[in-house]
Simulated assay, not measured.
Amino acid sequence: MHVLILGARAPACLEWARAFDEAGWTVSVGDSLSQPLSRFSRSAQHFVRLPEPRNDPTAWVEALATAIETQRINLLLPTCEEVFYLAHGLERLTPLCRVLTSDFALLHRVHHKGHFAAMTHDWALATPETHLLTDRQALLALADEAEQWVFKPAYSRFASQTLIRPYAQQLTKVQPSDIAPWVAQRFIEGRELCSFSVLIDGELRAHSCYHPRYRVGRGSGIYFQPSAPKSVLRFLEQFGRETGYTGQVGFDFIEDLDGRFHVLECNPRATSGVHLFDNQRQQLVSSLSDKPKTLLEPTPEPRMIALAILLLAAPQRALSVSFWRDYASARDVIVQKGDFCPMAAQVLSLAEIIVRAASRRCSLLAASTADIEWNGQPLSECTQ
C-alpha cells in the first residue's frame, strides 16, 4: 500500500510518515516547498514537488492526479490547510484513490469562526458569546467594552492577528467586510487546551487533548502536555454525530476558573496532538480503515519540538528549575532514534521560508502558510 501525505513542511506530516512506515506502507510526501521537513526523513521514500495551491488550485489538483496515477497511490492524506483545495478537487481525485477528508462545504463551515460558533451554540459544550463582524459599525458597537472581547479574523490561524482585550484605539486598523469578516468572542479567563482527533464518517477513532505549555508567542504550541478532560471527549463525540465528519480535526478550548470548558474554534486539519500517538503508530494507521476495539488514546508523557524550545523558550527561563524539568521529561517529535536527518532539515526548511518571507514582504509566520492557506476567497479566483 502506498500513501501520499501532504503538507511535508509540518511536523504532523513527519509523524504520519513514521506511522505509515512502521505499518509497512510505502510513503511519499508532497509539498510546494522544495526543502520541507519530512522530505529528509528515512520514513519518506519519495518526495512530490507540487505547485502552490493558493496560486493555482486547478494546476495543484492536476499535479496530484498525475502523482496518484504514476505512483499508484492508495491513500491521500492532508495535514495542513491544503485540505480545502483537496476537498475542492474531490470530484477529480476520488476516482483515483481514497482521499481522507470531508466535503468542502463542511470544512468551510467549521473553518469560519463565526459559522462554527453558530453551529455549536446550543451544544453541551459551546463557544463563548460570538458576534460576526462584517463592517466597521458592528465593530464600533463593541469598542467601548473592547476589554471584554477577543477580536480575530473569521479566517485565520496561529492567532497571528488576534487582539485579546484590546484598547479601543487598537481597533482602528481593523476593517471587517463581507469579504474579510472578523469575529468578536467574549473573553474567558482560564487555561487553554487543544485537541487532535481522527473521525471516519462521524465516528471517533482516535483522540488526544493537550495543554500547550510553551508557545511561539501567542500562537503555535511547541510543548504538548497531555490532558484528558471528559467534557472535551464528549464534545468530539457530539461533533461527530452532528456532522458526520471524516478526517483529522483539532479544536481549541478554554477551561474557565470554575472548571467549565468552552470551545473557541475549529482547525479542520492535523494538529500537534498527533505526536501523542507516537507509541502506537501502527494502531493509528489502522484506525483510518478499521474501527479499533476501543478508542485510541494518547501517551500520558509530554512531547515537544526541542529546537524551538531551546531557541524560543529557554532564553527567558534559563534559570528556571521547573522549565528544565519539563524539558527533560518530554520527547522530541522531530529527531528520533534512527531518523536524525530532520534535525538539519529544520534549518533548511526555515531558510526557505525566510527567503519566501523576504520576497513576499511578509512575516515568517505568514510565509510559512501563505501558499496553502484558504481565507474564504472563491477558489476559481485564488491568486496571491
Rank of each mutant, 00 (worst) to 15 (best):
I5G: 08
G7I: 07
R9F: 03
A10S: 14
A10Y: 02
P11D: 04
P11H: 14
P11Q: 08
C13L: 01
E15Y: 15
F20P: 02
G30E: 05
D31L: 01
P36S: 01
R39I: 07
S43V: 08
A59V: 05
L64C: 15
I68N: 00
R72H: 07
E81G: 02
E82I: 00
Y85N: 05
Y85T: 07
L86A: 14
G89H: 11
R92K: 12
P95I: 14
P95K: 07
P95W: 11
L96K: 11
V99Y: 02
F104P: 01
L106F: 05
L107W: 05
R109Y: 03
H111S: 06
H112D: 01
M119V: 09
W123H: 06
W123K: 06
W123P: 02
A124E: 01
T127C: 10
P128N: 13
P128G: 14
R136E: 03
Q137G: 09
A141W: 04
L142S: 14
D144Y: 11
A146P: 00
A146D: 05
A154D: 05
S156Q: 06
F158V: 09
S160N: 14
L163D: 10
P166M: 14
K173E: 11
V174L: 12
P176Q: 12
I179D: 12
V183T: 01
A184Q: 10
F187R: 00
E189K: 03
F196N: 14
V198P: 04
I200E: 12
E203C: 03
R205K: 09
R205W: 07
A206V: 14
S208K: 11
V216M: 07
Y223N: 05
S227L: 02
L236C: 03
L236F: 13
E237L: 10
R241T: 15
T243L: 00
G247E: 13
V249H: 08
V249P: 00
D252C: 15
F253H: 12
I254R: 04
E255Y: 11
E255W: 08
R260Y: 10
V263I: 15
E265P: 08
R269M: 15
R269E: 15
A270H: 02
V274D: 03
H275D: 06
Q280H: 12
Q280I: 14
V285T: 10
S287K: 09
L288I: 11
S289I: 05
E297H: 01
T299M: 06
P300M: 03
M304I: 02
I305M: 03
A306W: 06
A306M: 06
L307P: 00
I309K: 00
L310R: 10
L312Q: 09
A313P: 00
A313M: 12
L319N: 11
W324Q: 09
R325S: 00
Y327I: 13
K337S: 09
C341A: 09
A345N: 03
L348P: 14
S349W: 00
E352Y: 02
I353D: 06
I354A: 05
V355G: 01
A358I: 08
R361K: 11
S363M: 09
L364C: 10
L365C: 13
N375K: 13
Q377E: 05
P378W: 00
C382P: 07
